[in-house]
Design a protein around this nucleic acid. Structure first.
Length: 511
RNA sequence: GUCCCCGUCGUCUAGCCAGGUCUAGGACACCAGGUUUUCAUCCUGGUAACACGGGUUCGAAUCCCGUCGGGGAUACCA
């Protein structure tokens, strides 16, 4: 029941990292082809020489792999337009010789003025007509010898037998040009499928500018406080930035030269933004696939959420995997209206998936995501992972929520101390002191510790286990929050537990 | 400015094409209760939308027109 003739492609321009909008386009193209026994091609549109880079190309490829969207390019070769100049020139020359294109100050333009108008059909937006008045001759070959996107995309899609062109709605207005080109070349037009855009919650377009905005705001606030020179000094002292947050156009260059430009001329250098964020301890909004990966989202969840932005399988079904996408995806259920990216919903999906998966799977994903955390914890890693699986919304959460396992508290949260230690003439503090001696003589495993807590609660006729568990939490973590107290104690270890309790008792007696 | 596209809860959306079954359904978020040694989870309940104005029709979220609002194109970017 397959239709082997279907060919789709994803054709990003390697001018930056893969962003979520591109990822969704890739996902739709992939799912449509895969679900019908067709072919999905990856191709790089690097006709913009100035902005394209090989580094960006490699990162896009890596992100696509991570998402699980595999391509079927013959021989595994990913075509680059920069390597097909001869072919484009052949087409351009043909057009010129047929007087359908002409030289214009070093460039070549395709003639549209001889057309009565252009009409085409889109699988999502329906029938579209563009009147003669809107048709202008357009450049198909630039003065630098490269073809424009319009020419290259059409020639490539023809040569690669692409049957369905799935792309962002920003190309809808360009499609009349492409249709005219197909017609001029005497080739059958593909099925065009334009998808609505993904926007920020405030309705603006999602772009790397959003990162720059946040970083710039933080920088200006800091400069307000400590002055410009001191700020630049701080930023210069930052450690090397992880590769994943680097952008292709910012990989090289001296950071110090860029800070002024970043702050004053509002360029959107995201490496500078990332460095500032690192230094200021703020989070930049996730925009690119790599950002979500770094933040601890699962690729399957990202795909699931992204698919829902503009498409749904009906019947109130919201959670599904890539296989389901292949089976059910079709153009007739793609929406027309733009949608806003809602991180909360993505987070909820991610949390749900993380919390419901088998513990072994969670542990192995966490280890893969943060190998150093696993190394540091050694034998305790499994216990740690198990403890935080029910509490994690991303793969970054365990390390953040469980920070106190590695760093003993140096300060104690005021509210937590008042409520759990100081209240009622230091009742909590007194109980903590008494329970310290119990702990010193308890066998160190979760079951025994739990029994000890319960016995203590009964012996002292306490209201509930919280009466002793909460003071303990404050001593161990500096806050009133931790996983179940028995597990927490077991993992911290007897020696360290007693040391922390003693330190807390000392510190509280001082005040 | 001109042209193209779009407009259902705060957000993503179902319903629209084939008008009545829609006192508009689901999800996330939010609010209130409950379970729980804290947190998280979990359970129950709740608030909340057809942009506006005309028309067609016995009947309109669904069809038509206009207004307003949003997005895109108008580049030798893609």
């Amino acid at each position: 029941m397959t239709t082997p003739s279907i060919v789709t492609r994803f054709a990003p321009s390697p001018t930056g990292l893969l962003h979520v909008g591109g990822a969704r386009t890739a996902l739709f193209s992939w799912a449509y082809a895969k679900g019908r026994g067709g072919t999905f091609i990856l191709r790089l549109e690097d006709t913009d020489q100035k902005r394209s880079s090989e580094a960006a190309a490699e990162k896009i490829i890596e992100d696509l792999r991570w998402l699980g969207l595999n391509w079927d390019n013959s021989g595994g070769v990913i075509p680059r337009q920069s390597q097909r100049l001869a072919r484009y020139n052949e087409v351009i020359d043909e057009l010129k010789s047929r007087r359908l294109a002409y030289d214009d100050a070093g460039a070549v333009r395709f003639r549209m003025d001889n057309l009565p108008g252009v009409a085409f059909d889109d699988a999502v937006y329906g029938h579209i007509e563009v009147g003669k008045g809107q048709l202008e001759d357009f450049v198909i070959k630039k003065a630098d010898g490269f073809p424009t996107f319009h020419l290259a995309v059409v020639v490539d899609d023809i040569d690669m037998n692409v049957t369905h062109v799935i792309r962002g709605q920003e190309h809808l207005s360009n499609t009349a040009k492409h249709a005219a080109l197909y017609d001029a070349l005497g080739k059958p037009r593909p099925v065009w499928v334009h998808t609505p855009s993904i926007m920020n919650p405030d309705g603006s377009k999602m772009s790397k500018r959003d990162k720059a905005k946040v970083a710039r705001k933080a920088a200006l606030a800091r400069i307000e406080i400590e002055g410009r020179e001191a700020f630049i000094d701080r930023v210069l002292n930052v450690k090397p930035v992880p590769m994943y947050i680097q952008d292709s156009d910012a990989v090289s260059g001296n950071i110090s030269d860029k800070i002024d430009g970043f702050i004053d001329s509002e360029n959107d250098d995201i490496l500078t933004a990332a460095v500032i964020a690192l230094r200021e301890g703020i989070r930049l909004p996730e925009i690119n696939v790599a950002d979500f990966r770094a933040s601890g989202y699962l690729p399957g969840v990202l795909c699931n959420y992204l698919a829902l932005l503009g498409w749904n399988p009906g019947n109130d079904v919201e959670r599904f995997d890539l296989d389901f996408m292949c089976e059910t995806f079709d153009f007739d259920r793609i929406n027309k209206a733009n949608s806003k990216f809602d991180r909360e919903k993505l987070l909820a999906f991610n949390a749900d998936t993380l919390q419901k998966m088998p513990p072994e799977e969670f542990a192995s994903l966490l280890k893969e995501h943060q190998p150093r955390l696993a190394t540091k914890l050694g034998d305790q890693f499994r216990g740690f992972a198990g403890m935080y699986q029910p509490r994690s919304r991303t793969l970054n959460d365990p390390a953040e929520l469980g920070r106190f396992f590695f760093e003993a508290p140096t300060t104690y949260d005021d509210k937590a101390v008042k409520k759990n230690l100081a209240r009622n003439d230091g009742e909590g503090l007194k109980l903590l002191g008494e329970f310290r001696d119990v702990l010193a003589g308890t066998e160190w495993n979760a079951a025994a510790l739990q029994a000890a807590v319960e016995k203590f609660t009964a012996d002292k006729q306490l209201k509930n286990m919280g009466s002793i568990a909460q003071p303990l939490r404050v001593a161990l973590t500096g806050t009133a929050v931790s996983p179940p107290i028995d597990q927490t104690l077991e993992l911290i270890g007897q020696q360290e537990t007693l040391a922390r309790v003693d330190r807390c008792l000392d510190k509280c007696k001082e005040n």
